[in-house]
Amino acid sequence: MKSDRIQLAHGSGGKLSHDLVQEIILPAFANEALSELHDGAKITVQGARLAFTTDSYVVKPLFFPGGDIGKLAVCGTVNDLAMTGALPLYLSAGFIIEEGFLFADLSRIVQSMRAAAEEAGVMIVTGDTKVVEKGAVDGIYLNTAGIGMLMEGTDISPTRVRPGQDILLSGCIGDHGVAVMAGRHNMVLPHTIASDCAPLNGLVKEMLTAVPQIAVLRDPTRGGLATTLNEIAQQAGVGILVEETAIPVRPEVAAVCEMMGFDPLYLANEGKMLIFIDPPYSARLLEIMQGHPYGQEARIIGRVTTAPAGQVGLKTVIGGVRLLDMLVGDQLPRIC
């Protein structure tokens, strides 16, 4: 740690976040369930195989095209459970509210959470509410935790990633990051640009029911696609090569990124996932994904390689290979 104080970039999901976890948090709490560093912990209680996860949401602004902090909190926790191969069941909801916050906005957020939970088929069964002095919180922060049952016959783990596997992406990237940026700066953008925030557990259930051989599922949220691929490459000790022409980005999102100096490969997504699978199963998996509303744009974007271990390469349009490193700074803080 090069500084003696927390910086905003420590919450980016990139290198500084990684350093914070590795150097301060993991040594204090090290255990087998935590050490896998997946989107949720896999635990066994009296023979029942469970997944457990928690997350906090500080997105700014609270309301943005395609969603709000309430929908984001429910979908984010549901998706983290789904990425472990679990069927999400129950959620908690914790509210930290600034004095003076509008009742109308709180009601809108709560109703959004209710609607997202209904779509995902989960129940919010416990929670907590705290109110702090004006200025101590930027409106409202949410914390959600979730528990689910791991699907039988599945084993989702970075340790199962190996050279030769295909890498699938469920759809276009960068939508959420651009939508939040537009809301934050009151930008008028095409109506087609909206957050991709959505619960993916229904799609994941269909995928794992038909193709339980899936090695890894991961949703590329903070730090985006490039950072998530780096995390998996480092955890599995493999190389990764993805094709620039195969990665779907909406033209209008690409145009905004070019104008604002953002790289869509590092922008957060809230309704997309990466899948690592052996090639014989890829065609069947794509068929299932493309038949679901949240996977219609799914495609193969690359493959796992033997070397260089722990690194991610991007085969560019002109045929060269560009190294995709983990996000260092923060393109857009408070994105979720």
Score class of each variant (00 low, 15 high):
residue 251 P to T: 11
residue 251 P to Q: 10
residue 251 P to A: 08
residue 251 P to D: 14
residue 252 E to T: 12
residue 252 E to M: 08
residue 253 V to N: 02
residue 253 V to H: 01
residue 253 V to C: 05
residue 254 A to Y: 03
residue 256 V to H: 01
residue 256 V to L: 08
residue 256 V to M: 08
residue 257 C to G: 02
residue 257 C to M: 07
residue 257 C to Q: 03
residue 258 E to R: 15
residue 258 E to V: 06
residue 258 E to S: 12
residue 259 M to I: 12
residue 259 M to N: 11
residue 259 M to Q: 15
residue 260 M to Q: 12
residue 260 M to P: 00
residue 261 G to R: 04
residue 262 F to C: 04
residue 262 F to T: 03
residue 263 D to W: 03
residue 263 D to Q: 10
residue 263 D to I: 04
residue 263 D to N: 14
residue 263 D to A: 11
residue 264 P to F: 09
residue 264 P to L: 08
residue 264 P to G: 10
residue 264 P to K: 07
residue 265 L to A: 05
residue 266 Y to W: 07
residue 267 L to V: 03
residue 267 L to D: 00
residue 268 A to W: 01
residue 268 A to T: 12
residue 269 N to S: 14
residue 269 N to G: 05
residue 270 E to P: 00
residue 270 E to K: 13
residue 270 E to V: 06
residue 270 E to C: 10
residue 271 G to C: 10
residue 271 G to E: 04
residue 272 K to G: 03
residue 272 K to F: 04
residue 274 L to V: 04
residue 274 L to D: 02
residue 274 L to G: 00
residue 275 I to Y: 00
residue 275 I to N: 00
residue 276 F to D: 02
residue 276 F to I: 06
residue 276 F to A: 04
residue 276 F to Y: 10
residue 277 I to M: 05
residue 277 I to G: 00
residue 277 I to K: 01
residue 278 D to E: 15
residue 278 D to T: 08
residue 278 D to I: 04
residue 279 P to G: 10
residue 279 P to A: 10
residue 279 P to Q: 12
residue 279 P to F: 09
residue 279 P to E: 12
residue 279 P to R: 11
residue 281 Y to F: 15
residue 281 Y to T: 07
residue 281 Y to V: 05
residue 282 S to W: 05
residue 282 S to F: 07
residue 283 A to F: 11
residue 283 A to L: 14
residue 284 R to C: 08
residue 284 R to I: 13
residue 284 R to A: 13
residue 284 R to N: 13
